[in-house]
Design a protein around this nucleic acid. Structure first.
Length: 589
RNA sequence: GGUCCCGUAGUUCAAUGGAUAGAACGGAUGUUUCCUAAACAUUAAAUGCAGGUUCGAUUCCUGCCGGGACCA
């Protein structure tokens, strides 16, 4: 239990003893004391003033005295300002904390570990990954890592949308325009190669429509009649009928795409325990639709289509099977939820999916609940906002998509230039340099996308967003490298003896002690930005400490050892925190 | 038409109903005989509008204005 929780329990306890009133510890608000007042932690009393019929002054005095008595040796004194009860924590407590903290074990304890699935990435096979996918991948990976740090068992999965009309568009364009070319021939990454044919399809389609319109056809009709469009539809039909030639081409082109994806995933550090393919799962919901009809969860309309009425839950009616018997998007998801549950039997299943699908997931969970599927209650969408450009949304048709591979490469290049201009790593081998550029470039990118509350849409400005100063990954990486550099010089073989703590030393100890609570909070709210903000604040605090107080040349051996220990703990915490974001921290930079 | 989300310094982001709304970038000014200046210190600058609830509202409620998403 951390100190904040201790204070909450003690507050509840003392109120119970003094006034016989029951209060839940969770109701007690404990904050860090505002720096302009004396104290370390503050209990906010206003909430209890009315309930207990006491003025804040009297309540504060009685409660403060009782808590000092109860937590003797821990709390040294208290003061009251309006309704704020400020407690000072003893120097010895913080010293003991610093002395006993184990840099190898900084994590929260968890008595109720869960088995949690995190599904993320979810690409289409007709286009390469873009900036939006990067946010998804980084979020998914990070939240999985944070949940692991909290002590849970995590299964990372991916669903690949590998079928449908959009894939057929790439396929027909390839047949028409490629002359049998392959990614190997053109020395192109497979996903980009296939994506280019998707673009070529759209160009050809537009040209054909324009031609038909010029020949006197209406726009609407032309859009239906364009030969390439008809070709794609025929191809989809052949695919569904299992036509061997079509399937061969489909497999061949998808394998190119997967090769490209794998390269990107490896570069950005995404991995999966299991990858599902929609081509294998898209029929799975059908059985459940039949069951739902029997259970009268669904009903059939006169035209034969199958629906569910969710108006009682504040939503609409939703179709789950078309009149021609084909399943819709949500039917597939119901089937997949069931399959995943059978395979992994998880307590919770988190889907990392953009907020444009909020409604879809609300419906999905409701339907699963009404069907009484075991997976139902565990379904949770980690909904994240769009990444927009200063000019607005990314639009592939207008060529304003920021390509994931391009962006990653650019970040690495910038980190290379920046590192070279500082000239601090002249002793690195070429391989070490290359690794360092990757670490810094990806660190900057990941941190940039993860430092914002996932729920909010964010703006990415290609010119201005790339920064290596201030609230960035490289700032924290630099702080870590700097600590490591100092520790290499001072050594880390130390013996700690009791010290009076200076304000900056104490502030660092307090900040360090918050780490487990931050991990818990990030895990509970599925919000890696909490970890990003925390690591930044810790690094900033250490940099102030560093500028103010010398470690290697401290006034006394005791001080030196104390500060070395603070350095060890800070470095370890930054390392753990950044790893939770999928970011490495270099030993030197 | 219905449902949902979002409006905070010039810009990008913070702030479980709590003390004088924090950071970063950009702007201004300083700090390098001493442990990594990708750093540190000082400084100017913001809650869309109008009501309401509350001891206290960026946060909750209502209306309006502006931006976005989804469902037909």
């Amino acid at each position: 239990m951390n100190l904040t929780n201790n204070l909450k329990h003690s507050t509840a306890n003392c109120i119970q003893q003094l006034y016989g009133v029951q209060i839940q510890p969770a109701q007690v608000l404990v904050n860090a004391t505002n720096p302009e007042f004396e104290g370390d932690y503050t209990v906010v009393l206003f909430a209890f003033v009315k309930q207990l019929g006491k003025s804040p002054e009297i309540l504060g005095n009685e409660l403060g005295a009782a808590m000092v008595a109860e937590m003797k040796g821990l709390i040294t004194q208290f003061n009251i300002v309006k309704g704020f009860l400020n407690f000072s924590i003893s120097n010895d407590f913080w010293f003991e904390y610093i002395k006993n903290a184990n840099p190898e074990n900084l994590l929260p304890s968890n008595n109720h570990p869960k088995k949690i699935m995190v599904e993320y990435s979810s690409p289409n096979t007709n286009k390469p990954l873009h900036l939006g996918h990067l946010r998804n991948n980084f979020l998914g990976w990070s939240i999985a890592e944070i949940l692991k740090l909290q002590g849970n068992e995590v299964v990372k999965t991916c669903i690949v949308n590998d079928r449908g009309i959009h894939i057929c568009k790439s396929m027909i364009a390839w047949q028409l325009f490629a002359n049998g070319a392959t990614p190997a021939d053109t020395k192109q990454k497979g996903d980009h190669f296939v994506g280019d044919y998707y673009v070529k399809y759209n160009d050809a389609y537009k040209a054909q429509v324009a031609e038909l319109v010029a020949g006197g056809m209406t726009q609407a009709l032309a859009e239906k009649e364009a030969p390439i469009q008809k070709g794609a539809q025929e191809m989809l039909l052949k695919w569904e009928q299992g036509d061997a030639e079509t399937l061969d081409l489909w497999k061949r082109m998808n394998s190119w795409v997967y090769e490209g994806f794998d390269a990107t995933y490896q570069k950005i550090g995404s991995d999966f325990v299991k990858t599902y393919y929609e081509s294998n799962t898209y029929l799975l919901g059908k059985e459940l639709v039949e069951q739902g009809l029997t259970k009268k969860v669904f009903y059939q309309k006169e035209d034969g289509s199958v629906w569910i009425d969710l108006t009682g839950d504040g939503l609409d009616e939703k179709i789950v099977r078309r009149k021609d018997g084909t399943s819709v998007y949500i039917t597939q998801d119901i089937g997949l939820a069931e399959v995943k549950q059978k395979e992994f039997n998880t307590d919770v299943s988190i889907y990392v999916v953009g907020d444009e699908q909020n409604y879809h997931f609300k419906v999905l969970k409701l339907i699963c609940q009404k069907l009484q599927l075991p997976a139902a209650d565990g379904i949770y969408q980690l909904s994240y906002g769009m990444v927009e450009l200063p000019t607005g949304k990314m639009k592939s048709r207008e060529g304003t998509v920021v390509d994931a591979d391009d962006l990653v490469d650019e970040m690495i290049n910038i980190s290379k230039e920046k590192t070279a201009s500082l000239g601090k790593v002249s002793d690195f081998t070429p391989a070490q340099l290359s690794e360092l550029y990757n670490t810094i470039g990806l660190g900057a990118l990941k941190f940039f996308l993860l430092r914002v509350d996932p729920k909010k849409k964010m703006i990415f400005n290609p010119e201005e967003s790339i920064d290596f100063h201030g609230f960035t990954g490289p700032f924290i990486q630099y702080t870590h490298a700097r600590i490591k550099s100092i520790l290499r010089k001072t050594g880390t073989d130390i013996n700690l003896s009791l010290n009076e703590l200076l304000p900056l030393e104490k502030a660092l100890a307090i900040e360090l002690s918050n780490f487990p609570a931050v991990i818990n909070e990030a895990a509970e709210t599925l919000d890696p930005s909490k970890v990003a903000i925390y690591t930044f604040n810790l690094a900033k605090l250490f940099n102030s400490f560093y500028a103010e107080l010398s470690i290697a040349n401290a006034d006394s051996e005791e001080k030196k050892n104390l500060r070395i220990q603070l350095g060890i703990l800070t470095a370890a915490t930054l390392h753990k925190g950044m790893r939770a974001l999928g970011i490495d921290v270099p030993e030197q930079m």
